[in-house]
Design a binder for these strands. Structure first.
Lengths: 201, 201
DNA sequence: CGATAATGTTAACTCAGTTAACATAAGAAA
DNA sequence: TTTCTTATGTTAACTGAGTTAACATTATCG
């Protein structure tokens, strides 16, 4: 005479998992607690997910999708190439700051192995593609020489890692963005810094 | 008639903890396993450390120290300011790549809270100081105007986050450094990329 | 020597992830 | 409808982790 929950327990679990993850991160997310919170037996989640990694993978997939969407939106709205790179960087950091736990989940080592979750790998590849395309794309792509292509690729890597570094240091509290400036312009400022420029100092 | 281990169990534990951490990271480090490997009772570590965080803190402290030393060594050996920034970045990434688990430990969220381990906070501050000083220092510091100082600080942040981003993406396998080039020059290349330069593309 | 602190041991508690064995519900097949 | 099968839920158990309490032994210092 067990009380059965019907309807989409799976979705409810996912929903609650999102909540817990947002508040406490991947480590704080415990399947047992999740089950209790959902009002379901402690073994129930295993009927819907491939264990803890399974749930994390599902959450990571949707996180990747949102991430990719937001980057895409920015990429689509900025015409000028160099400017687009900059604004992509700001959006990249913006996502990380607004969703630190999700950002950590998709990039950190708590992320379930891509090999074991094909859909996760796909979501990850998609997100990277958005980034790479937006950063690499040029106005007259067909006319690119090999050297130019190599330069473009290197530039993509550089842009990517710069955004990533700022994002990481900010969400880890190592860099505290000035309060009198919005995050976007702060990031744009950092990205615009030219370490090679002469200082006169 | 228990077999007591004498001598510095504490140091042996730390040593083994280093080994386990290097191989499996903070999550893989289990106090019980550590105790078993050391041939000591499972509760013994608690006599020497403030639980798991205590051990992680101790390991993190020594990691910070090594990190700071290596950066310092580079900073001391490169005269030219801009060049020093670049080489510091390469050293930063070098440390991360050679000691990925330690790097993750000192920068990630597995790191015990700085508030609870004053020596850890000190070690962290020291490492950051080396970086900031080396990056901010100029030949004629006394003559710096306020504006110049602000610029220098911003540049320090930019340099730091660039190195950090490359380090993170490389140790997470998102960026794979080309095999036909040593890591240092690859990093220097990325750091030298000027996203603002015209491309002609 | 003898008291006291340091350090070790065993045993237990809580919580997590996971799985097995069982129960019920829903839906297709007869 | 009745029956078989599958999906989904439950309980109970196993393993392993972190931690603490209670107890034992050793070191050390008066």
């Amino acid at each position: 005479m067990g009380k059965y929950h019907h309807g989409d327990v799976r979705n409810v679990l996912l929903q609650k998992a999102e909540t817990i993850l947002t508040e406490e991160g991947p480590t704080g997310l415990s399947l047992r607690r999740l089950a209790r919170m959902t009002g379901v037996s402690e073994a129930a989640p295993y009927r819907h997910f491939d264990g803890k990694d399974g749930i994390l993978a599902a959450v990571a997939i949707s996180a990747f999708e949102r991430f990719a969407e937001q980057l895409e939106a920015v990429a689509a709205n900025v015409e000028h190439h160099e400017e687009r790179i900059m604004h992509l960087g700001a959006a990249y950091v913006g996502f990380a700051v607004e969703n630190p736990q999700h950002f950590r989940l998709i990039f950190g080592r708590e992320r379930p192995p891509l090999d074991q979750y094909p859909e996760l790998r796909e979501a990850a590849d998609n997100a990277f593609d958005v980034l790479q395309r937006a950063v690499t794309s040029v106005d007259r792509k067909a006319e690119m020489t090999l050297t130019e292509a190599a330069t473009a690729y290197n530039r993509a890597l550089a842009a990517w890692s710069r955004a990533h570094g700022i994002a990481m240091l900010v969400i880890d509290g190592m860099i505290v963005p000035p309060a009198d400036q919005n995050l976007g312009s702060f990031v744009l400022g950092l990205l615009a810094e030219d370490l090679n420029a002469p200082t006169g100092m």
